[in-house]
């Protein structure tokens, strides 16, 4: 067992690009779910909006890469309206159902042969991040050189994406924190607890819910952009239902209705996930058996790890719905 390798990789997971894009997506989900009580199970759809917005500039529109940012945001606003208009007047379940369905359809459409011309089919769109990386080079970060120390060693390409990513986490986190301390955030928190009470006080609940859904969606879109920039590509299967569920797990792990929770949660998620992944991989080097019954072999490590994600979410919901760092008195995605 190579413990030093396991710990090295795990620590990289803590601050790596996965934690970055999960954190941004989780902040967005937190605005919707943690603060407003909106069940958006289609965050992956919003992320796809951002990734494809960037990708399509080169692949289809043949315009400057930088137009991808407003384009992605536009896509996500349209998606948010499509999801929100039919559901936000109804009980919470309907939003969950529609978001899950819409995200799934988006994935099918972008991977379809029919629309390959626009979205590149199942191969997605590749090699469009060059303009972004050139900016990194302008700041003196060599794409291929290694930077850092000990376990925290990254290539210039990774480092540049991480610098931008963590800056965005800090900026978005700060803005959301400010918003939630403002009267606007107060209305959202009140809606989470009891819509009717808020209505009776003269607030247009529908409008606030829509604002929250769109804001969270746009933040999710930014997360999708960072993820796509890191890879330099978009693949439709990176935006499946499961991704939303994992982000939700990471958020709940850190604690809902807290900005810090939505940043620490994803970091912890990837620390633990990377640790388990590497640990189990080494453990299951030879199939583990009881008698003739194989408990686990190396090809199953990924699935066992995701099973643990599911189990974690279950146990959190039963024993600590406020998350590890959440405050039970304040936490309330379930006001009733």
């Amino acid at each position: 067992m190579d413990w030093s390798l396991i710990f090295e990789l795990s620590l990289k997971g803590l601050i790596g690009i996965n934690a970055v894009y999960f954190a941004i997506a989780a902040i967005g989900l937190n605005v919707q779910f943690g603060y407003t009580g909106l069940l958006n199970f289609g965050q992956a759809g919003f992320m796809a909006c951002g990734a494809y917005g960037l990708g399509m500039t080169a692949h289809y529109f043949e315009i400057s890469f930088w137009w991808g940012i407003p384009l992605g945001i536009l896509f996500s606003l349209l998606l948010g309206l499509l999801m929100g208009i039919p559901t936000l007047r109804l009980r919470a379940d309907y939003l969950a159902i529609v978001t899950i369905a819409a995200a799934e359809i988006i994935r099918l459409v972008v991977r379809s042969v029919r629309f390959k011309h626009y979205f590149g089919g199942s191969d997605g769109i590749n090699r469009f991040a060059q303009p972004f990386r050139e900016v990194g080079a302008d700041f003196g970060i060599d794409q291929t050189q290694l930077y850092g120390f000990g376990p925290f060693t990254f290539t210039g390409r990774e480092l540049w994406t991480m610098i931008v990513g963590w800056s965005l986490v800090a900026l978005i986190g700060y803005l959301v924190y400010k918003l939630m301390k403002s009267p606007w955030g107060r209305v959202l928190k009140a809606i989470r607890e009891d819509e009717d009470a808020v209505r009776s006080l003269g607030k247009n609940v529908y409008s606030y819910k829509m604002q929250s859904l769109l804001l969270g969606g746009v933040i999710g879109t930014i997360s999708g952009m960072i993820f796509a920039l890191d890879r330099g590509s978009v693949q439709p299967d990176n935006y499946s239902r499961d991704v939303t569920f994992y982000i939700l797990t990471a958020l709940v792990l850190g604690g809902v209705a807290k900005v810090s929770g939505s940043i620490i949660g994803p970091m912890l998620f990837w620390l633990i996930f990377t640790f388990l992944d590497n640990f189990l991989r080494q453990v299951a080097d030879k199939p583990i058996k009881i008698g003739n019954f194989t408990i686990m072999q190396s090809t199953q490590v990924g699935q066992v790890n995701f099973m643990l994600v599911g189990l974690t979410l279950i146990l959190l919901m039963v024993y600590r719905p406020q998350g590890i760092f959440g405050n039970r008195q304040e936490m309330a995605f379930d006001g009733r």
Partner: peptide, 24 residues
């Protein structure tokens, strides 16, 4: 007396758990 939203999120966890169990 655990709320419905909590239960609903729990079913999401259950879905992840079962699906990956089946896959494995």
């Amino acid at each position: 007396g655990i709320g419905l939203v909590t239960q609903m999120v729990l079913t999401v966890g259950l879905s992840i758990l079962l699906k990956n169990f089946f896959l494995s």
